[in-house]
Computed example of a mutant assay.
Amino acid sequence: MAYSIFNHIQGKKGSRWAEFVRETGTENLMLVAIDAAKYTQKAMICTFYGDILVKPFEFDASMTGFEYLNKIIRSEKAKNGLKEVVVGIETTGHYYEDLVRRCHSDGYHVRTLNAATTAQERQALLNWSKTDNLDLMAIVQSMIHGRGTSNKLASGNVLTLQKLTRARRELVEERTETQNLIRMHMDHIFREF
């Protein structure tokens, strides 16, 4: 059966995720939710159906911590006979970037999720409290529903251009804000001009 990329409710992005899930088989998928942070990160490992294989655990935001995470993932993958690992990471500041790069280099499928997506998922579950464990559950739910993107992070010239563009945008905003302040003070002090 052929599936058109234009015939999915989430468009091209949703179509690719649905095709990946269909080809791999839901029973062969392991989902790893990671809540990235500056010093101590948290992860949880589940099946595609939401069955928890490894309860939430913490690991350092270092190479040693990532190796610890990787060891647990490989162990659970072998123990449960799963074929593919999908890692879901919430985009928090820049702390998630190293995780994304490492997971890509280790051959995992990575889905990055906007923090607003997990907040919406918590709201849908009628749970407004915010804890790391609830964030992990929201990340898993979001991945199951096909939310998030699978794009690789920019590198090389593209990354340099992104940084340059963002710096320019900030400078333009600062200049505009300064001009507006000058105009406001001129209007207050020298109204006749």
Score class of each variant (00 low, 15 high):
128 W>V: 08
11 G>M: 00
2 A>Y: 12
81 G>M: 04
50 G>N: 01
12 K>I: 06
31 L>E: 03
136 L>A: 01
36 A>P: 15
132 D>Y: 09
117 T>H: 08
174 E>W: 14
56 P>A: 02
114 N>W: 06
139 I>C: 07
85 V>W: 02
53 L>G: 05
154 A>D: 08
101 R>Q: 06
64 T>K: 15
150 S>A: 12
175 R>G: 05
142 S>C: 09
48 F>N: 05
88 G>I: 03
187 D>R: 10
145 H>P: 00
122 R>M: 09
79 K>Q: 09
138 A>E: 04
162 Q>S: 09
104 H>Q: 12
142 S>E: 03
28 N>E: 01
39 Y>F: 14
187 D>E: 08
50 G>T: 03
123 Q>E: 12
42 K>G: 12
142 S>K: 06
158 V>C: 10
98 D>M: 13
114 N>D: 06
80 N>Q: 09
104 H>N: 14
5 I>G: 14
17 W>I: 11
156 G>M: 04
93 G>D: 04
89 I>P: 12
82 L>K: 02
74 R>T: 11
87 V>G: 05
122 R>G: 08
105 S>F: 13
117 T>K: 07
8 H>T: 02
149 T>A: 11
89 I>L: 10
121 E>G: 11
72 I>G: 01
68 Y>D: 11
42 K>Y: 14
176 T>L: 13
98 D>Y: 13
60 D>L: 11
68 Y>W: 09
54 V>L: 11
103 C>N: 05
71 K>G: 09
29 L>Y: 00
172 V>P: 15
41 Q>H: 13
49 Y>N: 14
160 T>K: 13
149 T>P: 13
30 M>F: 01
138 A>Q: 02
8 H>Y: 09
7 N>G: 04
38 K>A: 14
45 I>V: 07
105 S>H: 15
159 L>A: 15
174 E>P: 10
115 A>M: 04
70 N>I: 00
46 C>Y: 04
189 I>G: 11
177 E>C: 13
87 V>K: 02
94 H>K: 06
184 M>C: 08
130 K>V: 00
117 T>I: 12
46 C>G: 08
109 H>C: 04
152 K>F: 14
9 I>V: 11
176 T>A: 12
63 M>P: 15
59 F>M: 03
153 L>N: 06
114 N>T: 05
129 S>A: 10
136 L>F: 06
187 D>I: 03
24 T>L: 00
52 I>N: 07
13 K>P: 15
92 T>M: 05
112 T>G: 03
102 R>P: 15
91 T>Q: 10
88 G>E: 00
73 I>K: 03
184 M>T: 05
55 K>T: 06
176 T>D: 13
37 A>K: 13
72 I>Y: 06
64 T>G: 15
17 W>F: 15
82 L>T: 02
76 E>I: 08
115 A>Q: 08
8 H>E: 04
155 S>D: 08
176 T>K: 11
110 V>T: 00
28 N>T: 00
126 L>P: 15
19 E>P: 14
97 E>T: 00
153 L>E: 03
49 Y>M: 13
22 R>S: 07
7 N>C: 08
26 T>N: 03
11 G>D: 01
167 A>P: 10
119 A>C: 06
135 D>C: 07
32 V>T: 04
114 N>L: 05
54 V>M: 11
170 E>P: 15
122 R>A: 07
